[in-house]
Amino acid sequence: MTALIEVENLTVQFRTDEGLVTAVDDVSFTLDKGQVMGLVGESGSGKSVTAKALMRLNARNAVYGEKSRITLHSETGPIDVLKLTSARDLKIVRGGAISMIFQEPMASFAPAITIGKQMVEQLQIHSDMSKARAKEISVEMLDRVGISDPARRFDQYAFELSGGMRQRAMIAMALSTKPKLLIADEPTTALDVTIQAQVIDLMKDLVSEFHMGIVFITHDLGVIAQTADKVSVMYLGRLIEEGPVREVIRNPKHPYTQGLIAALPKLDDLDAPLTPVAGDIPSPLERPSGCVFHTRCPQILGDICKTDLPRDRRVDPVHRVACHLHDEKTPA
């Protein structure tokens, strides 16, 4: 496997009236070509900010850490994403080599411009193809994502499509530039289960066909289990566990991951009580010291969790966890 994108020590803070708020704190991961990474976490865990950093889409008040590095391995060589400045250079990570699909497709299409016109526009921005050729490719893509009568849909507006169709159209638009990396931010959350199942199937087909890497952001572990190769779990800006999907779901190491899985209502055991993760996620303005999860952790060891930031430990070569419970198991 070859690396597609490498994120090293990513820290993102936002300048606000209340001071500097940390959204992402020292996160590192690597995504290989053709790999699907699930990024899981609650609201406020920093998963969307992490994903947006890959495309430099965070708001202007975002401050990236000095040691933070994001390297995209493109066909023309490595690109240092955080160093890009001009609009021309940023085009590569914004819709060129990296595309993004969002949770709410209605909000992501301009309402007064036809779907087709928007697709053609972005193709022309990212290549020098003719309008006719761009239309041809757009209709082809709409057809590919399972939209019936694509030539007619091409001339329609977003409001004329149903929710599932809109999400398909957005996927078609995101993929028409043949990106190397697709970021999918809760792409199925707003959809009904039957439509969600269709969209998941579609995305699986497209991964194998286009051989893209995908960062799949969701809070739904069922969706992760169905789509991802590996899973990264975030909590309050920290990446607390990462490993292959089977390992993390069947054998979670971090108390937070264990809690998340226990909190899921399971259909095969209706008698099992629902066990929430106790307490609420703290406000980013009041980040706990030490391990960020210690205020809610049922397995807290004592002062060490309150004072010392746990380091990443490898429980096996591909499964890592940041928790003091695993400190002694692997010598640093």
Binding site: G163, M165, V193, T194, I195, A197, K204, A225, K266, L267
Partner: peptide, 25 residues
Amino acid sequence: KALFSAIPSLDPDDRGSAQKLQGEI
């Protein structure tokens, strides 16, 4: 039945066995 089978399984090895309902409401 279709609704039930569309619920994503938490088992990573149980992929794609679901019966997929075509089309939309």
